[in-house]
């Protein structure tokens, strides 16, 4: 078990380093974009005087490295600064409600997609090359091949214009869980359709791969039912690749759903990130980038821990 703890500590250390590098890259990349906050927020109405005054007020006239280290020291003390656009509002407060929305949608979609994908994956492995396998595969592949917004529009056309579900996933203040689930159903379903195929096919491939192993043949020869062979003997050994693909898809559900947010008018982090980049609101961009990077780091770490735990050979390596 000590081996696991050491791995976690080591990986968290590397994770911090990753976040540091990400913060430099994002800061640099935002600097490389043409224009800055003052120009972006004034837009067509920008005059040189107003731009200069905003820059001076916000300290944007300082050199890049001064601004970066100011920001970095703030972050080390747990202060992510204030948004350039709303001086009275700490970034953390701005992000919190959006983060909650993003997690809610990600968990909602994952709660539908992961069981569905794993069940389908096991079933298609069990009945591989049957009609069921082909139909399930081609349906899932078509769902993943359409762009997300197209899937979303189809769902709106079928399920929202007929009045079953709302086309806008906005949450009224004080909505209870039932209403939240109802209002966010279409975006969650869209995401489910988008991520299911990947996980399902990976499950299928991992299981089928194992089915050629001698110990599976042994199990079959002693007369075990095919479903039992797969669930008892193949699946536990397929956990590592499955955990990895699930982690990647969960990370995607947190970081990559801006298109779905826009189509369903869902106030999540993706939209905030895009807006902040377009207005060069660097403190907000940085904070969100760190959250996204941390999501990848932590989910990958979790996947690795699960695969290690699921594999006694890795557990007992010294």
């Amino acid at each position: 078990m000590a081996h696991i703890w050491r791995m976690i500590a080591q990986r968290l250390g590397f994770g911090l380093l990753t976040l540091f590098v990400v913060s430099i890259i994002i800061f640099g990349a935002t600097e490389l974009l043409p224009g800055d906050f003052a120009q972006a927020v004034l837009g067509q109405a920008a005059t040189p005087e107003a731009v200069a005054n905003i820059r001076r007020e916000l300290g944007l006239d300082q050199p890049v490295y001064v601004r970066y280290f100011d920001w970095l020291f703030g972050v080390m003390q747990g202060d992510f600064g204030t948004s350039l656009a709303q001086r009275g509002r700490p970034v953390s407060e701005m992000i919190m409600s959006r983060l909650g929305n993003t997690f809610f949608l990600a968990i909602y979609a994952a709660a539908m997609a992961v069981p569905l994908a794993l069940t389908l994956g096991v079933l298609v492995a069990l009945w591989r090359n049957s009609l069921f396998d082909r139909v399930a595969n081609s349906t899932a592949l078509s769902a993943i091949s359409f762009p997300e917004f197209f899937v979303a529009y189809i769902l709106i056309f079928v399920l929202a214009q007929s009045g079953y579900f709302p086309s806008m996933a906005r949450m009224p203040a004080g909505a209870d869980l039932g209403e939240k689930l109802y209002r966010a159903f279409l975006p969650a379903l869209t995401l489910t359709l988008v991520v299911t195929a990947h996980m399902m096919r990976m499950t299928r491939a991992a299981i089928i791969n194992l089915l050629a192993s001698p110990y599976i043949e042994m199990a079959r020869l002693k007369g075990m039912r095919p479903s039992r062979v797969i669930i008892r003997h193949a699946l536990p050994n397929a956990i590592a690749p499955i955990a990895n693909v699930v982690a990647i898809n969960l990370a995607y559900l947190i970081t990559g759903v801006v298109v779905v947010e826009v189509v369903f008018v869902y106030p999540g982090l993706g939209q905030l990130m895009v807006d902040s980049v377009s207005r060069r609101d660097i403190p907000v961009v940085q904070a969100i980038a760190l959250i996204f990077a941390a999501a990848y780091v932590l989910l990958n770490l979790t996947a690795d821990v699960i695969s290690t735990l699921s594999n006694p050979r890795l557990m007992h390596r010294t």
Partner: peptide, 16 residues
Amino acid sequence: AILDSAARQNALITGE
């Protein structure tokens, strides 16, 4: 704020 024009039109049609 409903930036996507299709989403905006859907919101009107569906009574949002």
